[in-house]
Design a protein around this nucleic acid. Sequence first.
DNA 1: ATGGATGCAAATATTTTGCATGCCT
DNA 2: AGGCATGCAAAATATTTGCATCCAT
Lengths: 166, 166
Amino acid sequence: MANRVPLASIQQYSQEHLREVLNTAGHRLTPQREKVLSLFQRLGPGNHLTADDVHHHLKQSGKKVSLATVYRSLKLLVTMRLLDEGEWQEGLRCYELRQGGSKVVHHHMVCMRCDHTEEFTSEVITAASRDVAQVTGFELTEVRLTLRGICRRCRQRSKAAAETVP
Amino acid sequence: MANRVPLASIQQYSQEHLREVLNTAGHRLTPQREKVLSLFQRLGPGNHLTADDVHHHLKQSGKKVSLATVYRSLKLLVTMRLLDEGEWQEGLRCYELRQGGSKVVHHHMVCMRCDHTEEFTSEVITAASRDVAQVTGFELTEVRLTLRGICRRCRQRSKAAAETVP
DNA sequence: ATGGATGCAAATATTTTGCATGCCT
DNA sequence: AGGCATGCAAAATATTTGCATCCAT
């Protein structure tokens, strides 16, 4: 039987595609930009990295890219819609691989206690968002939903603690 | 006929209520904290201010609160659930008055061209969020949805421009 | 060739913190 | 009174920018 590769994680942009995206917008595909993006691809979708994280990861892999360039690259890759920017952990500006060009919308559920982030998709929410946008005459580019609360694991943990010390 | 006051905007916490909320959590109601919060109440809900904005506004009103204290107050008021924190304009950490203690959830629709922000509510989205949370065993505290795109006004403006120069 | 991109370091901007003093409870 | 809160200034972070040099197109 052939190896199975989860469809959802096939998100490798070919170098050619990357070059085209950048060139079309008057930018260049430099080794640094490639390194930054391929880091996100290596880690897979759902990983949230700060500029500093990216810088460290790259340094550890022996691929040195200056922090300034990391900042510039992240900003560019966001405007190129290859990455998404968000603040998932309190006060940290993070980046993640963008999923299939605004087709696959995914949302986040963040535990305020342990900071664990789960992702999910919801047709209902996407549809509802489209409706709202349409009524308002808004041309929708991006739907981002974040649920915050306490995850199952943390709830059970605190429940157990409460029962131990009644 | 008596004066009409839009119900939705009655969001003035009394000093007593404030004091109680803070004291219960072991904090104090200081003039500074009151000033910060009352600024948000003066401007009304739907206003997004950075720490620096708050500092300036207060300074202009003759009420001086040190920037450090503004930072400390904002952080505290967020944990007290009196304010909400978010990044609506690219790269700016902003705060706004929290609406009716997690009962009235409101979402944001941000125009990427003119940065104008509209707010809206959606029962469908709220309900769907609750469902997702329940299925996952997640105790939901906060639902935050942000739609990004181009607002009607900007779309019309660019359409008009396109027609002028065919 | 040539203009955008990078690295470095310096400049800015943002946020946090130590400490003496003040003031809410 | 006692301890949390403030102001100030300094420190720690985070992000941007000027400029000489490099390199993708």
